[in-house]
């Protein structure tokens, strides 16, 4: 319990620091009034807008006003849409989360078996092919790979749609395109695109983990107990290699959300990533700030979740943070 409280305090402090950095960074950007206002506007109109946006106050005041508003969930209105920035972000969050989730599932569901195989059959042709593929997966820049996916599977073969989210279904109160066939059809390419880099990472981790665990005495003892090979691999080895993989998945979920910027732009996926790119291009300050704060919060929550998950799969780690 003490541990959880300490972690929460740390998280709060981190959020505070980040909010300051974000605000200071954005504050340093050019004056948004210049874009917002008609170049022919009078000096008085200009001054009124500046006062309306609170831009005439000193930096620290602006920050505290900002902080106070943020704590009430008010990030200001988008300059472009003239609607609450937070609302805009939250509206698009489910699409991004479902994309990241689908990508993680692909990376884990394909990566663990492939990595296990490469580790167990170390040196075989199949294993070497898997490893070569994973090196390629690391090297191909994400955005170019997306273009190739479109070229091959949408344009040349016509199997998948080029862009968009497709139909959204509802299941257990969650609305997601993962619940309709049309939605799955739309999410396939973007999810694969987002997954490839992490798939390569999961394969590498699973493979090295398997090789390490395989050589342990307890695996030999499990064989001596007469357990079937499938039980040894699926229970004894898998449980051990899951620990680093869970860490990776937890840590990289945030990275996936960030990288979704690229995928969403190319596949015109209506998520937060596409919104932030558009907002950056249009210098829509409140949306950019809101996005960053939301991302920071997601990161902090993810870190906490990963720590909690740890203690579930590795009995040696207890929540006091000590490794026995």
């Amino acid at each position: 319990m003490v541990y959880v409280i300490r972690r929460l305090l740390q998280a709060l402090f981190l959020a505070l620091v980040m909010s300051f950095l974000v605000f200071a960074g954005i504050f340093a950007v050019g004056n948004p009034v210049d874009i917002l206002i008609d170049p022919d506007a009078t000096q008085a109109e200009r001054a009124r807008l500046i006062a309306q946006l609170g831009l005439d106050r000193p930096f620290h005041q602006q920050y505290f006003i900002f902080l106070g508003n943020v704590l009430q969930g008010d990030f200001g209105n988008s300059f472009v849409y003239n609607r609450p920035a937070l609302g805009l972000i939250l509206e698009r969050m489910p699409a991004t989360l479902e994309l990241a989730f689908a990508a993680i599932m692909i990376a884990v569901v394909l990566g663990i078996p492939l990595g296990l195989y490469a580790g167990l059959r170390h040196g075989s042709v199949g294993s070497q092919a898997i490893m070569a593929g994973s090196i390629l997966g690391f090297s191909v820049p994400n955005f170019w790979q997306a273009i190739i996916l479109i070229m091959v599977f949408s344009v040349a073969l016509g199997w998948f749609p080029v862009s968009g989210r497709g139909e959204v279904g509802e299941f257990l109160g969650i609305r997601s395109s993962l619940f309709t066939l049309n939605g799955l059809h739309h999410i396939a390419l973007p999810a694969i695109n987002l997954a490839v880099g992490h798939l390569a990472l999961v394969i590498r981790l699973a493979r090295s983990g398997t090789r390490e665990v395989q050589a342990q005495d307890f695996i030999r003892f499990a064989r001596a107990k007469g357990l079937s090979e499938s039980r040894i691999v699926l229970v004894h080895i898998l449980r051990n290699i899951l620990i680093p993989i869970v860490t990776l998945v937890g840590m990289s979920f945030g990275g996936l959300i960030a990288f979704a910027v690229v995928t969403e732009t190319i596949f015109a996926w209506p998520g937060m990533g596409k919104l932030i790119i558009d907002s950056i291009r249009l210098l829509d300050r409140p949306v950019v700030v809101a996005y960053l704060i939301v991302i920071v919060v997601i990161f902090i929550i993810l870190n906490l979740l990963v720590d909690l998950l740890y203690s579930l799969i590795d009995p040696r780690i207890r929540l006091d943070g000590a490794r026995q």
Partner: peptide, 19 residues
Amino acid sequence: DLHLSFPPILVALILLAVM
């Protein structure tokens, strides 16, 4: 540590948004 906990693409995006 603070820096490395954020994905590079995000940091770069923000900076370029600013500059």
